[in-house]
Design a protein around this nucleic acid. Structure first.
Lengths: 216, 216, 216, 216
DNA sequence: AATGAATGAGCCTTCATTCAT
DNA sequence: AATGAATGAAGGCTCATTCAT
């Protein structure tokens, strides 16, 4: 059970950045960067607030000026990533005409790239979500949005006669996004040796086959 | 938190069961059962040795007669499950002639059943593996054995002309076992609402499709 | 606001003494005695749990085996005094025939003796009662019982035609017990120089006069 | 807790008001008013300087421009009340011819009125006096002056043959002023239900009786 | 004068682990 | 073997106070 969730410091979520003085903004940023470093190195449970403050080069009391607890700073940290995680923006992706499979590959490539960069934080997020309701909810929101997009896409393909109608889109969306997620997790967290483009190719192939997608 | 390193208690692994008196065997068993209950209820980090001892109905000190730490008792606990996890034995499964797809369904059904029963412990195992080398290795061993079986099967199907030869069996084995694993994890840990037989059917369908398996 | 009232250690009030092993009973007693010493020396707010543990000759962690907080140990401490405070038992006081004024003197003498011995603790109790509901209630109970006895006595005297009927017994009981209480508090806490027997005599005289008590 | 000893801020007592600019005078006044509000609400120990500054609408640091500590501002606060506490000025009270008992009632009424208005602050003053020498001295000065006036009056009545010569005026002055003080404290702090004019009447009656005062 | 971010002393609390009985 | 009291490392949190701007 997290011990300090109910702490009510001045600035539990961190004030909106705009309300802070430049100096405060700098300190807050230093703490967030330090937190990322420490969390990635030590995981959530072994990360100590003192270490975060030390790494940020401030006194440990300063931590509490900005964040009420480890949970709070972690959630603030992922808030900073959230839009990037949910809507990876490859430049001018919309302009190019690409067929379904290429789109799928692009989507999987984006996902793996994100996971390569943020996988450690996501893994910690999942760890924290086991103990912290707020983290769990925020994580679920992100995942659900992601899975829903996949489900809608599958349903679209089925309507267009481009995917196996025997597939239940809800199960498939959960299963196939999970496949990519789990693959990435194993790959990056446990340093299994795969090659990037081949992973993109193979995961996309499995995904397309699984739905019996027809090339367009 | 003590980092489960230098601790050198009397009996780090617990004595081999055979060497124990009946009374000691009973105490050890009570501790293991209590540990399972407490771990499932509280997760690894929030489980306290005190609670395990209390639940087992023994004094705190007694814990250390059998196990050196929370890590030790957890590993002893999963040791007891290991063969069951790796080789789910459905009665007389080998006797019946079944085609590939039915075999696949049976395999997935077994897996989901195991996960339904042991999923909470497996999730904790994965949590612990992030912090504990021994847990990580033991987990990896189990997973690797499991994935290797899948890979061999895929390679067999390819050799028999019953699966898409473009698939890389190593990637596919990792991805598809991961798909089922992650699906089960989400399902049972996060109480997502799926129906058991349909999950078996859909996961098997996705798996078979992904490999372009031909029915036999 | 007291910070740790909601702490729920194994033994918030201290178990009934009978349930403790002799060693535990000794430690608990040592902590209570140390607490009394430290509270009397430093007052409630400046008393530190570490000092109590040190004074008792135990590690500070041991404190928490027996008491959950400073508040808890203080309340346990006054529990030990309570019957003594409420029912001061002078030996064979009942046997001797004494008239009303002698009884009054005896009662005031008892009170001043108690205050001489426990005044510091009572003063701390009153301090704590400002911040802690449980302390306030326990204190009020004791005071109310004491004042009620005085009131009943005054009413009895009035019924017997031995005290001024214009006096309102409720106001008078509160005022006169308060007079003795406040006198004792000033005397012992602030080291004002009064002589014991003369204080007994004068307070009793003022009390008797105030009620226009007739000697019997 | 820092013991308010070695602190040497710019302005330990606050500058004499006369030396301040109008703006500074306003800020100082705002802090004193905020302090009163916060002390009355939270008591001394739970009052935080941060709250006082916030309530006054100034930055935390500004507090230290005017006062060196919580103790300092509290003492400055009661300084502002002191003359009022000691010399309650009922309008044209001196002009009217009143007999001794009426004077006594008037005096007690004044006292209870003061206590009704300032009782919370006085109670806090007494709390602080347990820990702070300066507060204790200032409080003692006020009380001694008050008690001395009562003693002189009693001695006067005795010399005039209007009060019991067996009473020791020093003891009686302490006891009877204490009676009223303690009554008021209980009444207003603990919300005991008494009626104002009856309290005046009864306390005066008890006081007069106690001294066997003769009506003039 | 005022600001408010930064500081760190001071104290609290938990719980894994030891050890005398 | 079992007990359970004692230990103390580890880390958390608050808030009075300072100081650069």
């Amino acid at each position: 059970m997290p011990k300090n969730t109910e702490a009510t410091p001045k600035n539990q979520q961190g004030a909106p950045e705009s309300a802070l003085t430049p100096r405060a903004r700098r300190t807050r940023k230093a703490l967030l960067e330090a937190a990322q470093k420490v969390f990635e190195r030590d995981g959530f449970h072994n990360a100590r607030i003192t270490d975060i403050a030390d790494t940020a080069g401030v006194a440990h009391g300063t931590f509490y000026t900005y964040f009420g607890s480890k949970e709070t700073i972690f959630l603030a940290l992922v808030d900073g990533f959230l839009s990037e995680l949910l809507f990876p923006s490859s430049p001018n992706s919309e302009k190019i005409k690409i067929d379904s499979f290429e789109r799928l590959k692009k989507s999987n490539r984006d996902y793996l790239e994100i996971y390569r960069d943020y996988g450690r934080i996501i893994a910690i997020w999942e760890e924290l979500a086991k103990y912290n309701k707020e983290a769990a909810e925020k994580l679920k929101q992100g995942e659900d949005a992601f899975i829903l997009r996949a489900r809608r896409k599958i349903e679209q393909l089925q309507r267009d006669g481009l995917a196996d109608p025997d597939i239940d889109a809800r199960y498939a969306a959960r299963a196939l996004t999970g496949m990519v997620h789990k693959f990435a997790d194993t790959w990056f967290s446990k340093k299994e040796d795969f090659e990037f483009e081949q992973a993109v190719e193979q995961l996309s192939l499995l995904w397309a086959n699984a739905l019996r997608m027809k090339r367009t």
